[in-house]
Amino acid sequence: MTEVVNNQGTTERVAIVTGGSRGIGRETAARLGRDGYAVTVVYGGNQAEAEEAVKEVEQAGGRAIAVQADVADEVAVAALFDKTEETFGGVDVLVHAAGIMPLAPLAELDLDVFDRLVRTNLRGTFVVDQQAVRRLRSGGAIINISSSLTKLARPGYSAYSATKGGVEAITLILARELRGRDITVNAVAPGPTATALFFEGKSQELIDRIAAEPPLERLGQPQDIAEIIAFLAGPGRWVNGQVIYANGGSAA
Protein backbone atom coordinates (compact mmCIF):
# COMPACT_ATOMS: atom_id res chain seq x y z
CA MET A 1 0.00 0.00 0.00
CA THR A 2 1.10 3.56 -0.71
CA GLU A 3 1.96 5.52 2.39
CA VAL A 4 0.72 9.10 2.60
CA VAL A 5 3.16 11.94 3.21
CA ASN A 6 1.85 14.77 5.38
CA ASN A 7 2.46 18.51 5.13
CA GLN A 8 5.64 18.21 7.18
CA GLY A 9 7.14 15.87 4.56
CA THR A 10 7.10 12.84 6.87
CA THR A 11 5.23 9.60 6.38
CA GLU A 12 1.81 9.82 7.96
CA ARG A 13 1.09 7.26 10.65
CA VAL A 14 -2.43 5.93 10.97
CA ALA A 15 -4.22 5.03 14.19
CA ILE A 16 -7.50 3.34 15.04
CA VAL A 17 -8.92 4.45 18.38
CA THR A 18 -11.87 2.45 19.68
CA GLY A 19 -14.03 4.23 22.19
CA GLY A 20 -12.75 7.34 20.45
CA SER A 21 -15.88 9.45 20.79
CA ARG A 22 -15.54 10.17 24.50
CA GLY A 23 -13.32 10.03 27.57
CA ILE A 24 -9.78 8.70 27.32
CA GLY A 25 -10.31 7.53 23.75
CA ARG A 26 -11.41 10.94 22.55
CA GLU A 27 -8.55 12.73 24.27
CA THR A 28 -6.13 10.18 22.80
CA ALA A 29 -7.49 10.70 19.28
CA ALA A 30 -6.93 14.45 19.59
CA ARG A 31 -3.46 13.92 21.08
CA LEU A 32 -2.46 11.69 18.18
CA GLY A 33 -3.84 14.30 15.81
CA ARG A 34 -1.41 16.76 17.36
CA ASP A 35 1.37 14.36 16.40
CA GLY A 36 0.14 14.38 12.79
CA TYR A 37 -1.67 11.03 12.79
CA ALA A 38 -4.60 10.13 10.63
CA VAL A 39 -7.16 8.70 13.06
CA THR A 40 -10.19 6.47 12.73
CA VAL A 41 -12.50 7.34 15.61
CA VAL A 42 -14.51 4.21 16.41
CA TYR A 43 -17.79 4.71 18.25
CA GLY A 44 -20.60 2.49 19.45
CA GLY A 45 -23.76 4.56 19.17
CA ASN A 46 -23.38 8.33 19.47
CA GLN A 47 -22.54 9.66 16.02
CA ALA A 48 -22.69 13.30 17.11
CA GLU A 49 -19.98 12.76 19.74
CA ALA A 50 -17.87 10.90 17.20
CA GLU A 51 -18.13 13.74 14.68
CA GLU A 52 -17.07 16.19 17.38
CA ALA A 53 -14.07 13.98 18.12
CA VAL A 54 -13.19 14.01 14.41
CA LYS A 55 -13.25 17.81 14.45
CA GLU A 56 -10.94 17.86 17.46
CA VAL A 57 -8.42 15.64 15.66
CA GLU A 58 -8.55 17.89 12.62
CA GLN A 59 -8.18 21.04 14.71
CA ALA A 60 -5.13 19.46 16.35
CA GLY A 61 -3.51 18.96 12.96
CA GLY A 62 -4.45 15.41 11.94
CA ARG A 63 -6.94 13.84 9.59
CA ALA A 64 -9.83 11.76 10.86
CA ILE A 65 -12.94 9.77 10.05
CA ALA A 66 -15.61 8.28 12.30
CA VAL A 67 -16.68 4.64 11.95
CA GLN A 68 -19.37 2.88 13.94
CA ALA A 69 -18.62 -0.66 15.09
CA ASP A 70 -19.46 -3.17 17.79
CA VAL A 71 -15.97 -4.09 18.99
CA ALA A 72 -17.07 -7.64 19.87
CA ASP A 73 -18.38 -8.29 16.33
CA GLU A 74 -15.57 -9.66 14.20
CA VAL A 75 -17.31 -8.74 10.93
CA ALA A 76 -17.81 -5.13 12.00
CA VAL A 77 -14.23 -4.86 13.26
CA ALA A 78 -12.80 -6.28 10.02
CA ALA A 79 -14.89 -3.72 8.13
CA LEU A 80 -13.56 -0.81 10.20
CA PHE A 81 -9.99 -1.90 9.46
CA ASP A 82 -10.95 -2.15 5.77
CA LYS A 83 -12.37 1.38 5.85
CA THR A 84 -9.25 2.73 7.55
CA GLU A 85 -6.97 1.09 4.99
CA GLU A 86 -9.10 2.35 2.10
CA THR A 87 -9.11 5.90 3.46
CA PHE A 88 -5.58 6.30 4.83
CA GLY A 89 -3.54 3.55 3.13
CA GLY A 90 -2.79 1.29 6.10
CA VAL A 91 -2.82 0.99 9.89
CA ASP A 92 0.13 1.55 12.26
CA VAL A 93 -1.40 1.93 15.71
CA LEU A 94 -4.36 0.45 17.53
CA VAL A 95 -5.58 2.08 20.74
CA HIS A 96 -8.34 -0.06 22.19
CA ALA A 97 -10.17 2.14 24.70
CA ALA A 98 -13.76 0.93 24.25
CA GLY A 99 -15.32 -0.58 27.36
CA ILE A 100 -18.23 -0.58 29.79
CA MET A 101 -18.28 -0.49 33.60
CA PRO A 102 -21.54 -1.53 35.27
CA LEU A 103 -20.92 -1.98 38.99
CA ALA A 104 -22.40 -4.18 41.72
CA PRO A 105 -21.17 -6.52 44.44
CA LEU A 106 -20.52 -10.00 43.08
CA ALA A 107 -23.51 -11.48 44.93
CA GLU A 108 -25.87 -8.93 43.37
CA LEU A 109 -24.62 -8.59 39.79
CA ASP A 110 -27.11 -9.82 37.21
CA LEU A 111 -25.47 -12.51 35.10
CA ASP A 112 -26.82 -10.94 31.91
CA VAL A 113 -24.87 -7.82 32.84
CA PHE A 114 -21.81 -9.97 33.53
CA ASP A 115 -22.12 -11.56 30.09
CA ARG A 116 -22.37 -8.12 28.49
CA LEU A 117 -19.25 -7.00 30.35
CA VAL A 118 -17.31 -10.03 29.18
CA ARG A 119 -18.53 -9.60 25.61
CA THR A 120 -17.59 -5.93 25.35
CA ASN A 121 -14.46 -5.70 27.48
CA LEU A 122 -12.84 -9.11 27.01
CA ARG A 123 -14.13 -10.52 23.73
CA GLY A 124 -13.93 -7.00 22.30
CA THR A 125 -10.24 -6.80 23.14
CA PHE A 126 -9.58 -10.21 21.64
CA VAL A 127 -11.47 -9.42 18.42
CA VAL A 128 -9.92 -5.97 17.92
CA ASP A 129 -6.39 -7.17 18.74
CA GLN A 130 -6.82 -10.12 16.38
CA GLN A 131 -7.51 -7.79 13.47
CA ALA A 132 -4.65 -5.52 14.52
CA VAL A 133 -2.22 -8.43 14.47
CA ARG A 134 -3.30 -9.24 10.92
CA ARG A 135 -3.24 -5.66 9.65
CA LEU A 136 -0.63 -3.50 11.40
CA ARG A 137 2.44 -2.43 9.46
CA SER A 138 5.96 -2.98 10.71
CA GLY A 139 6.86 -0.44 13.39
CA GLY A 140 3.33 -0.47 14.72
CA ALA A 141 1.91 -0.51 18.22
CA ILE A 142 -1.05 -2.10 19.97
CA ILE A 143 -2.15 -0.32 23.15
CA ASN A 144 -4.94 -1.84 25.20
CA ILE A 145 -6.64 -0.05 28.09
CA SER A 146 -6.79 -2.01 31.33
CA SER A 147 -7.46 -0.55 34.78
CA SER A 148 -5.61 -0.06 38.06
CA LEU A 149 -8.64 -1.71 39.64
CA THR A 150 -6.99 -5.04 38.90
CA LYS A 151 -4.62 -4.05 41.73
CA LEU A 152 -6.75 -1.68 43.84
CA ALA A 153 -9.40 -4.38 44.43
CA ARG A 154 -12.34 -2.12 45.25
CA PRO A 155 -15.64 -3.73 46.33
CA GLY A 156 -18.22 -3.66 43.56
CA TYR A 157 -15.69 -3.98 40.76
CA SER A 158 -15.20 -7.76 40.66
CA ALA A 159 -16.71 -8.34 37.22
CA TYR A 160 -15.14 -5.26 35.63
CA SER A 161 -11.73 -6.03 37.12
CA ALA A 162 -11.96 -9.64 35.97
CA THR A 163 -12.40 -8.50 32.37
CA LYS A 164 -9.47 -6.10 32.70
CA GLY A 165 -7.30 -8.84 34.18
CA GLY A 166 -8.05 -10.75 30.99
CA VAL A 167 -7.05 -7.72 28.92
CA GLU A 168 -3.67 -7.69 30.67
CA ALA A 169 -3.16 -11.41 30.04
CA ILE A 170 -3.95 -10.97 26.34
CA THR A 171 -1.54 -8.03 26.16
CA LEU A 172 1.42 -9.77 27.77
CA ILE A 173 1.07 -12.96 25.73
CA LEU A 174 0.41 -11.18 22.44
CA ALA A 175 3.60 -9.15 22.80
CA ARG A 176 5.54 -12.43 22.84
CA GLU A 177 3.55 -13.97 20.01
CA LEU A 178 4.62 -11.07 17.78
CA ARG A 179 8.32 -11.86 18.02
CA GLY A 180 10.05 -10.69 14.85
CA ARG A 181 7.21 -8.44 13.70
CA ASP A 182 8.50 -5.09 15.07
CA ILE A 183 5.11 -4.42 16.67
CA THR A 184 4.92 -3.49 20.34
CA VAL A 185 1.99 -4.51 22.57
CA ASN A 186 1.34 -2.79 25.88
CA ALA A 187 -1.52 -1.96 28.21
CA VAL A 188 -2.16 1.26 30.10
CA ALA A 189 -4.04 0.78 33.38
CA PRO A 190 -5.49 4.11 34.52
CA GLY A 191 -6.59 4.81 38.04
CA PRO A 192 -9.68 6.94 38.72
CA THR A 193 -9.91 9.32 35.77
CA ALA A 194 -12.32 12.22 35.28
CA THR A 195 -14.51 10.77 32.54
CA ALA A 196 -18.25 10.27 32.22
CA LEU A 197 -17.68 6.55 32.74
CA PHE A 198 -16.07 7.22 36.13
CA PHE A 199 -18.57 9.83 37.35
CA GLU A 200 -21.66 7.79 36.46
CA GLY A 201 -23.60 6.73 39.57
CA LYS A 202 -21.13 8.17 42.11
CA SER A 203 -21.94 10.68 44.82
CA GLN A 204 -19.83 13.82 45.15
CA GLU A 205 -18.67 12.57 48.57
CA LEU A 206 -17.37 9.36 47.02
CA ILE A 207 -15.71 11.21 44.15
CA ASP A 208 -13.95 13.55 46.60
CA ARG A 209 -12.78 10.63 48.73
CA ILE A 210 -11.35 8.75 45.74
CA ALA A 211 -9.67 11.93 44.44
CA ALA A 212 -7.89 12.41 47.77
CA GLU A 213 -6.34 8.93 47.81
CA PRO A 214 -3.24 9.35 45.56
CA PRO A 215 -0.32 11.43 46.81
CA LEU A 216 -1.07 13.96 44.06
CA GLU A 217 -4.54 14.37 45.60
CA ARG A 218 -6.59 14.62 42.44
CA LEU A 219 -8.32 12.50 39.86
CA GLY A 220 -6.43 11.64 36.72
CA GLN A 221 -7.38 13.61 33.64
CA PRO A 222 -7.89 12.08 30.20
CA GLN A 223 -4.89 14.13 29.05
CA ASP A 224 -2.67 12.35 31.58
CA ILE A 225 -3.50 8.99 30.04
CA ALA A 226 -3.38 10.24 26.45
CA GLU A 227 0.22 11.39 26.91
CA ILE A 228 1.28 7.89 27.96
CA ILE A 229 -0.57 6.33 25.04
CA ALA A 230 1.03 8.77 22.59
CA PHE A 231 4.46 7.82 23.93
CA LEU A 232 3.76 4.12 23.46
CA ALA A 233 2.32 4.76 19.99
CA GLY A 234 5.38 6.67 18.84
CA PRO A 235 8.79 7.04 20.50
CA GLY A 236 8.38 4.37 23.19
CA ARG A 237 9.65 1.52 21.02
CA TRP A 238 11.64 -0.19 23.76
CA VAL A 239 8.62 -0.54 26.02
CA ASN A 240 6.97 -3.83 25.09
CA GLY A 241 4.89 -6.47 26.84
CA GLN A 242 4.18 -4.18 29.80
CA VAL A 243 1.22 -2.97 31.86
CA ILE A 244 1.74 0.65 32.86
CA TYR A 245 -0.25 1.65 35.93
CA ALA A 246 -1.15 5.33 35.58
CA ASN A 247 -2.89 6.28 38.81
CA GLY A 248 -0.97 9.11 40.48
CA GLY A 249 0.54 6.77 43.05
CA SER A 250 -2.61 5.14 44.41
CA ALA A 251 -1.58 2.12 46.47
CA ALA A 252 -3.14 -1.32 46.23
Rank of each mutant, 00 (worst) to 15 (best):
L109A: 02
S146Q: 04
L136E: 05
L111E: 13
G140K: 00
T150F: 02
F114L: 14
Q131F: 06
N186R: 02
P155E: 10
L103P: 10
A189H: 05
T120N: 15
L117D: 10
Q130V: 12
I170H: 00
T163A: 09
S148L: 13
L152Q: 08
A159K: 00
V118P: 12
D112E: 09
L103K: 08
P105K: 14
L103V: 14
I173C: 13
N144T: 00
G180D: 09
T120Q: 15
T125K: 01
A159F: 03
R181V: 02
E108S: 10
I143L: 11
R134I: 09
G124Y: 04
G156M: 11
D129E: 06
P102V: 09
G166S: 04
S161K: 07
Y157W: 07
I170N: 08
S158L: 13
T150W: 00
L106V: 13
V188I: 14
Q131K: 15
R116V: 04
D115Q: 14
N144A: 04
N121P: 01
R154K: 11
R123C: 03
A107C: 00
N121D: 06
S146F: 00
A141R: 03
Y157R: 08
R179S: 11
R154E: 15
R176N: 14
I183R: 01
T171H: 05
R176F: 01
A132P: 04
I183E: 03
N121C: 01
R119W: 07
F126V: 07
N144G: 05
S146G: 12
I173W: 14
I170E: 06
K151D: 14
V128T: 11
D182I: 08
I142E: 01
A159I: 02
E108H: 03
R135Y: 08
L117C: 15
Q130Y: 11
D129A: 10
V128Y: 05
E177V: 09
A162Q: 09
A104E: 00
R119Q: 15
N186G: 09
